[in-house]
Design a protein around this nucleic acid. Structure first.
Lengths: 392, 392
DNA sequence: CCTCTTGGTTGTATTATACAACCAACTCTG
DNA sequence: CAGAGTTGGTTGTATAATACAACCAAGAGG
């Protein structure tokens, strides 16, 4: 039983500085509708924790007055490891609290022959020293996996790419072997793409957007291995990453899908495997995909679409097709207002987003729930349980 | 500058009682993780406001002990007017704080020849006395309109059915003419369908669902008037009604739509107007609609779909089709878990939902925003600005 | 009748916040 | 260049919301 508002306002201040680097105490007090003395006290506390520091002294306004002290998060307070694990490779990145990537590594890894949790434990053991050589401790790890993930329980519920149809207790299993104080967070890979867009888009956080993630995956068709594109979607709705009632949101299969094929469209697998090699196939896939994305843009009134993965090669055509179909699919005379672009992070989008997800959870305002407890995925907690050490 | 937690916890208690009629103080304190003395004090305050009353004295447990006092919201503290305005008719309902409908009325009204705001003002003038004859004051009004509505500003941004392509300042305009203390809330009609499902589904509030609202609307095709079905969707995602970046979420048009027609599907208007008269047309529409709904169910992982409007006649076929297509559209061996049903409220679903929306906003926990102010649509406020009159 | 148990109340201590008075440091003007 | 006005930030104090502990109320069971 401990529900002091303090935690809430401390986090509000911290998060506000994080999202808007360079604000002064007065700016914060105005934004958050808190008294400036309250902000002063909270900032003092955060400075004591080395989470916030003065960045620069600004200029006085035209009418004079004391010069404001711009504040910022201490970037090197700690770092976050972001990991993406796919069927044939994994990626690790290290970022500081400002979101700067200071480490990045990609390597092949065959998940068909290796255990998922064991592989992850290996990765952490191998790369934690690399990150901590900077002097920053690893304060948390974010992981992006293909499949249905329950981030609150830290569980991989199912995954077609991993051929996993029973639950894997990912976080608990890893923590057992790792003996690591840093908490671990997991989410679906496409959702991690969303987290990456959310975490550091400070001023212009998109409220409703779609992250389209394509991966080329091996499939065995008639005794031969082929690569077929598998599409996953990550959705942010009302500013929040959407998981759905059973954590399976983001699955894609065309409305015109015909039973029996491995690919997600209305074409045959024979056609599908010629993707990126046969421009006619490319065109068909682009058109069909663009229609579905356009439908979602209009039905959900999305403000933004980001394309990641191998689709990036055909991004120009895809973007044009989406634009065309959104407008065709729109009944009103106005123009549909939706930015469509390609992920700037390329290969690292998911791993980076996974790390961003961790920071998003760390530096967040605990929401007051009405019924039941507030759900924190896997005990992420920033502020120390405050006892006697509170600065008045 | 006033951000005492009190308001938050008072509302939390009130809302908990509202959502779970019959809880005792101890129950509440356990659910909300508040000290029982705090709950006692808050309940005392709410009783003083006549918002909460003891409902019954329960039985002691098997180990003895004092008998709990079950609490409930005072149903007759006030009532809410819910209004649905369509192009050819309007509906008014009156509900109490328990959500019981005690008044209901539907009447033709030609919105092509009447001004929207004036009509609404008329409706309020005519029906307020009817509601207040019960002795309950009208504490608020909820309105459902077809078109894009910004509920925060209380504005109808555009509406194809009303042939309105410029903004209508609905709430401000009405309040000016009405001189009414009760606040007015507006939302899109299909969204109101969602509000109706949310507001009084106490224990089992669906977190992710779709409300499909069909309306038969007049269209002039080749000099003749026909009725064509117009479909709108209301979405609840993560427990919240989804409006989208530009308040236009819920628009429906088929992926296979061909330019030039008034109807929303791939068929011609000649065919579309035979809906409900030609079973072949019905089948085509049902199939096409079901595919799109199935796509949304899987892409958004919806837990529930509710069908309202004239589609209800064909509900059995539509439900079966949706079931079939969701499973076809699903790549995993598991069964898709989504309840599909028909609105129990029939004609009144939208008006009832509009009233429910008002209560949802009235009895809600103000969310603490990080940046900027917390957005209350049109100044709905339950608790008095507390000054000296606070009990202890 | 006594003990144990559970629901609820009351008085007190703690703590987060607002408020007001203050200091710090700047611009502008006469 | 002194002083008035202005803005950012700090400090001391009052207030109000909450937890905690001790209590009362009212039941069950021996």
């Amino acid at each position: 039983m401990a529900h002091y508002i303090s935690d809430v306002n401390i986090t509000r201040v911290l998060r506000t500085v994080w999202l808007n680097r360079g604000l002064s105490r007065i700016d914060i007090s105005r934004r958050l509708d808190l008294n400036k003395s309250t902000v002063s006290k909270i900032v003092g506390y955060l400075e004591e924790l080395s989470l916030v520091e003065p960045a620069a002294v600004g200029d006085a306004g035209p009418a004079g007055g004391r010069r404001p002290i711009h504040l910022q998060i201490k970037a090197d307070w700690g770092c976050v490891m972001g990991v993406e694990i796919q069927t044939e490779a994994f990626t690790v990145v290290g970022i500081n609290l400002h979101g700067d990537v200071f480490f990045s590594h990609t390597e092949p890894l065959d998940l068909r022959t290796h255990d998922l949790v064991d592989s992850f434990v290996d990765i952490v053991h191998r790369f934690r020293p690399s990150l901590e050589r900077t002097g920053m401790p690893v304060i948390g790890i974010g992981v992006g996996l293909p499949g249905f993930v329950d981030p609150v329980r830290g569980v991989l519920k199912a995954s077609m790419p991993f051929e996993q149809y029973t639950e894997v207790n990912f976080v608990a299993g890893a923590q057992e072997q790792l003996d690591l104080s840093a908490p671990i967070l997991v989410d679906n890979d496409a959702n991690c793409g969303c987290w990456g867009e959310l975490a550091f888009k400070h001023s212009t956080r998109p409220e409703n957007f779609l992250f389209v993630l394509g991966e080329l995956r091996k499939h065995t068709i008639e005794m031969d291995d082929y690569r077929i594109m598998a599409l996953g979607m990550g959705l942010v709705l009302n500013g929040k990453v959407h998981h759905g009632t059973g954590h399976s949101a983001g699955e894609f299969r065309s409305i015109l899908y015909r039973a029996g094929t491995v690919n997600q469209f209305s074409i045959s697998d024979i056609e599908a495997r010629r993707f990126l090699q046969d421009s006619q196939v490319d065109e068909m896939i682009i058109d069909e995909l663009a229609r579905h994305i356009a439908f979602l843009i209009n039905a959900l009134n999305l403000g933004k679409v980001v394309i990641g993965g191998p689709m990036e090669v055909l991004a120009d055509e895809l973007i044009a097709a989406i634009r065309e179909h959104t407008q065709q699919n729109w009944a009103y005379p106005t123009m549909v207002d939706c930015q469509i672009g390609v992920s700037r992070l390329g290969e690292q989008a998911v791993a980076y987003g996974a790390a961003g997800m961790f920071l998003e959870h760390l530096i967040r305002v605990p929401s007051v729930q009405v019924d039941g407890e507030l759900q924190t995925p896997c005990g992420v907690q920033l502020l120390p349980r405050r006892g006697t050490d509170l600065p008045v």
